[in-house]
């Protein structure tokens, strides 16, 4: 299962920027894909949605390389189902969250390394312009390998280490509140402008009505 999750994760991660950018690597989508493969789409979507909320305002603008939200979503969902298959009960969401955040930071560094390695093929092309296609498409191989090097050790560790936290000693609701608060703050940060403020208020009133009735 570790190898399978690693390969699927690395393939999905190609969509981040190397191939297509169809949105398949967004945490909520990758969560649904991994969930479907592991037999529970709904849980996959839920875990993916949590990571999506955390990284909603994570904008890859210009040269900026933000924490790897896509890798975090894949690692988080993969870890969830891996822990579930080992323990045969509901995994601790805190561990899943920790794994995802750790991967987002490591993924960010690996991303920078891969982008530096990609300079090699560019200079090779400058020396020999007949190698354009080889030099360009070697970037896809590098992006795939980045995914493999990122997910394989993480999934192996998750499957080997026995975590000391018991599910009972952890307040799942509080983690959800914190993640949702971060998601809402991300959203407000993106959309708080004069013309869209009213829509934010209308949405909040609708939510309030839902909770009251």
């Amino acid at each position: 299962m570790v190898i399978l999750l690693t390969l699927i994760g690395a393939l999905i991660l190609l969509d981040k920027y190397a191939v297509g950018e169809f949105g398949l690597s967004q945490p909520i989508v990758s969560g649904a894909i991994i969930g479907a493969l592991c037999g529970d789409v709904q849980v996959g979507i839920f875990v993916g949605a949590l990571f999506q909320l955390v990284f909603l305002a994570n904008l890859p603008i210009g040269k900026d390389v933000p924490p790897d939200a896509q890798a975090a979503g894949i690692a988080g969902c993969g870890s969830y189902f891996l822990l579930k298959s080992i323990n045969q009960n509901e995994p601790n969401l805190m561990i899943v969250f920790l794994v995802g955040i750790l991967v987002s930071v490591i993924g960010n560094y690996l991303d920078i390394i891969v982008r530096r390695i990609n300079e090699g093929p560019f200079y090779r092309f400058l020396r020999d312009n007949k190698k354009l296609y080889i030099c360009h498409f070697s970037g896809i191989v590098m992006a795939f390998l980045r995914g493999v090097f990122l997910f394989l050790p993480i999934f192996l560790l998750v499957s080997i280490i026995r975590f000391p936290f018991s599910a009972a000693a952890f307040n799942k609701d509080f983690l959800l509140i914190v993640i949702f608060a971060l998601g809402i703050a991300n959203g407000i940060y993106l959309y708080l402008k004069r013309q869209s403020f009213y829509f934010l208020v209308i949405g909040a009133i609708c939510a309030l009505v839902y909770f009251v009735f």
Binding site: F180, I184, Y191, V201, I205, A207
Partner: peptide, 11 residues
């Protein structure tokens, strides 16, 4: 986007 963010707590 703004409306959806306002509506988010219903999840």
């Amino acid at each position: 986007g703004a409306f959806s963010i306002g509506l988010m707590p219903i999840i």
